[in-house]
Nucleic acid binder design. Structure first.
Lengths: 337, 337
DNA sequence: TATTATTGGTTAAACGTTTCACTTAAGTCT
DNA sequence: AGACTTAAGTGAAACGTTTAACCAATAATA
């Protein structure tokens, strides 16, 4: 049972290889009966085209890479934050609709990812999350179209889809204030310039200032953006402050906080209110349901794919940025004082 | 800036293309200084090999496909059940360690996935979950090594990694009985012969019988395996039965049940106990923490990759099956009566 | 009618590797 | 010294496509 090639289809139909190729690709219009002849033969022989071969000559692989951060070098779980699965899901779906397949890689960015992308002849790459500077340098050299998602990179020349995070932090905090809170803790990842945490923190501060509430550095807590760390921080917030509300910059942290508060028999939201950010599925799973800042993750993935496809087709290099809206989604984790 | 090929490396070093290829692959031992010469030139020129080309001739792509069910045809979210993200994460990690890249595809199985696998010259495919019969037929034709994960397919000839689900259902139910419950609802997906639900149901019945508790068909509830459906079923269980415990055949359902019970102000576990199955991360996120049947998902992914690699290397066709152990992981969702 | 376009198709080069079969030079054995 | 082995490297075919350049026959135009 040898492998069936285009040559076999040519023999079967009595046509040349070239004609068969044209018939399949439609790059040259042929009479319908010829096309029919070819498709019949393909069906009969069970021919499937070899993408390695076509990719070699056409220099197009219909493959896009998706890079997801691996929080700790050598860490195992790629998808520590469910946000990554959710957006990956959307990217995979939308890419498939456009005829692309997706290669996912967790990377801690010290392996040179873009070597790989070139090896595979990838048509484009979607980079999710933030990475160290030198990662983007390697990325620069490769001539592969790139779309960043939530990179929080400053002054870059890439296409990007992201959120208005200052605004998100702002409306979250404003919502809490409007519900009568003025002692509001801010729980986040490490705050570094231009990063997610910093952006949302800016929004937090803005809302406080607007309402003449002093920014208390004692109310700011940071650590890794994960469930366990959030529990620790939540405990500290209870023990070290008199806050009535916690604004967590990620749902996964908010869920950790709620878990810990529940465990400490502190009623959410009666005693402490919790506000999240992302609107992941888990925001709905926990009790009480998490009031959070909603983003349309499906759309985010779709935009990333759309932008990338455009870049692939047009080969245009101009930067393009897409800022998606955010809004408060109300559930039950915030009390009116 | 033309693309750098092996030819350029050959020119740079003054060696032939063949020698460069051998130096890189190590398939022929060459003097260290020659190898060094080559690696230096590669570094200098920034050469990366074109996998399309090598795949074409060597017939090896270092690519494996992972198929994940898309619950409803045309549905968007591929990863409705976090189980899929968790195992995908493990598969991606372990495959990468072995030098493979992973292409994920959601599929509702009516698209002929294996055409795609052949097109891409995939070295192997890991199929997660259960699919309609005809999906496996297409799979048969392709000569690509396959590993199934949780297929619940009867009498097949593929390699597979799965759980002892009858036993899992058994120990879950036994645990509940030992905690004083004898009115135990069973919540699951559609029960069809050989499926997951049926297996776990068998275990459930076995435990009941062993303890002389009659099996009450009124206590069995099924629907889609998702969060929302589980809420509906939980409500019905409360309204239609006098059960003191619910055994959910998947964590995602258990979490839905807990959410609904919380909403109905029914205390878990004081009034109703809930037992899950899978030990996903979300089992830890919810309150009360979900007591569940634990499986080692990382190991499951690793086994799948190992089995597949073995199949790829040895081209041996004998079936191989790997049944991973399960155990009760205690948290707080089951009360002692 | 002579000229030009169009239609339906073919030939063959090119893509960038791997690898089999071969050569040449040097080393080893009797 | 002659025969044999080994080491280091080369030439070129092969993998399965795409596509530019070309051709013959028919249809359209002047």
């Amino acid at each position: 049972m040898r492998k069936v090639t285009i040559k076999d289809v040519a023999n079967e139909t009595g046509l040349s290889i070239a004609t068969v190729s044209y018939a399949m690709s439609g790059k040259k219009i042929l009479p319908p009966e010829t096309v029919k002849l070819v498709t019949n033969a393909i069906e009969k022989l069970g021919y499937v085209k070899n993408i390695s071969a076509s990719s070699l000559v056409s220099n197009k692989s219909n493959l896009i890479g998706v890079v997801i951060p691996q929080t700790e070098p050598g860490s195992v779980m790629v998808f520590e934050n469910p946000f990554y699965s959710e957006i990956l899901s959307s990217i995979e779906y939308n890419a498939r609709l456009q005829g692309y397949h997706v290669i996912v890689s967790g990377t801690n960015a010290d392996e040179k990812y873009f070597t790989l992308a070139k090896q595979r002849n990838m048509d484009g790459v979607i980079v999710i999350g933030a990475y160290p500077e030198d990662f983007y340098e390697g990325l620069n050299l490769s001539n592969i179209p790139i779309v960043l998602v939530d990179s929080y990179l400053e002054n870059h020349e890439y296409k990007e889809v992201k959120l208005d995070d200052i605004y998100g932090g702002y409306i979250a905090t404003k919502y809490l204030i409007e519900h009568g809170h003025n002692k509001i803790a801010f729980m986040s990842g490490k705050i570094k310039d231009g990063g997610v945490s910093e952006k949302r923190y800016q929004g937090y501060k803005k809302a406080l200032k607007e309402n003449a509430i002093p920014v208390n550095p004692k109310y700011v807590f940071n650590g890794n953006v994960d469930f366990e760390e959030a529990r620790i921080l939540a405990k500290r917030i209870v023990e070290e402050t008199d806050c009535t509300a916690i604004f967590c910059m990620a749902d996964i942290m908010a869920v950790g906080a709620i878990k810990e508060l529940n465990k400490m028999k502190i009623k959410v939201p009666q005693q402490i209110s919790v506000m999240g950010y992302d609107n992941l599925n888990i925001a709905n799973y926990c009790t009480p349901g998490l009031t959070t800042i909603g983003q349309d993750i499906f759309k985010k993935g779709k935009m990333a794919v759309d932008l990338l496809c455009k870049a692939i087709d047009n080969k245009e290099v101009e930067q393009e940025e897409c800022v998606l809206p955010v809004e408060v989604v109300e559930r039950e984790s915030v009390a009116k004082l």
